[in-house]
């Protein structure tokens, strides 16, 4: 009975992870959380969009095109941290063989790919009026394109392999190798001469824009994150039902008790 030696909070945490790790508990807990997530992500994105498109002041150089930033920057942030979370799920699956981690990896890839695509498209739309070009092969843009290809590669690899277990291991490995790209994206604007401007935010420094411009950006980033988690959990629930359709609890759920 070694558990008695653990402090309470550890027991609670352990219990929580254990429950979330089981497909059925994840299904039930996420089912209760999802309505809240949908409302919160909808509210923050709506607030952020109205605020940034309608009320944020124009930029002294760019005029109204600066508003594209409020769609572009959160997309780029979530595209990268979504990849990091997906890779962590891959590592958990490789080491502990927890099934739900594989479900998480598989379900994050299409969302991440869509958000990366959004970041690239809005970046191009922003680049045309400000820089004078849709696309340039500089380090930041190219490494973000590589991020899109990594997401697409994971989707393709998954669907190319019949066996779920080996497909899970292969995609987790690919996701882990692709982690190398994340610091390259982040530091590309510092390591090399690029057309892309450096980051406006860094830890411990004042943002390079006034509060009336960065607070709505923060709201949008929050909204994108919430939306990402909402979609992720929704996809995972569908995938869990797909994989567990033979079990009693799913059959009872479908038939209705």
């Amino acid at each position: 009975m070694r558990f008695f030696s653990l402090p309470d909070y550890q027991l609670i945490m352990l219990n929580w992870f254990h429950r979330l790790g089981a497909p059925r508990s994840f299904y039930e807990i996420s089912g209760r959380l999802l309505p809240v997530l949908w409302v919160l992500s909808g509210l923050s994105i709506l607030t952020g969009v109205i605020w940034s498109l309608g009320f944020v002041p124009e930029d002294y150089q760019q005029g109204n095109s600066v508003r594209i930033m409020y769609i572009h920057v959160p997309a780029a942030i979530v595209a990268q941290s979504g990849y990091a979370m997906m890779a962590v799920a891959g590592a958990v699956f490789l080491i502990w063989r927890i099934k739900i981690a594989d479900v998480a990896l598989q379900c994050a890839a299409p969302i991440g790919a869509s958000i990366t695509f959004l970041a690239l498209v809005t970046g191009a739309i922003w680049g045309k009026p400000t820089w004078g070009t849709w696309w340039v092969w500089d380090a930041r843009l190219t490494s973000t394109l590589v991020l899109l290809f990594l997401y697409l590669g994971i989707i393709a690899l998954r669907s190319a392999m019949e066996n779920r277990e080996s497909a899970g291991r292969a995609t987790a490995m690919l996701a882990l190798v692709g982690v190398v790209n994340l610091p390259i994206i982040k530091y590309s604007v510092d390591w090399w001469f690029t057309l892309h401007q450096p980051s406006s935010f860094s830890l411990g420094e004042k943002p390079a824009m006034p509060a009336e411009m960065w607070i709505p950006l923060l709201v949008m980033v929050l909204g994108y994150y919430l939306f990402f988690f909402t979609l992720w959990a929704t996809r995972m629930r569908v995938e869990i039902l797909n994989r567990e359709f033979r079990t009693d609890w799913v059959q009872r759920l479908v038939v209705g008790s």
Binding site: P57, E58, D59, Y60, Q61, Q62, V66, M69, T130, W131, G132, T133, V136, L195, Q197, P198, S199, S200, A208, M209, P210, E212, M213
Partner: peptide, 17 residues
């Protein structure tokens, strides 16, 4: 043959300039 504008990471409203 082509000139692109490279802007910096600073954004502000015109009246602040």
């Amino acid at each position: 043959e082509e000139v692109l504008a490279k802007h910096d990471e600073t954004y502000m409203p015109p009246e602040l300039v």
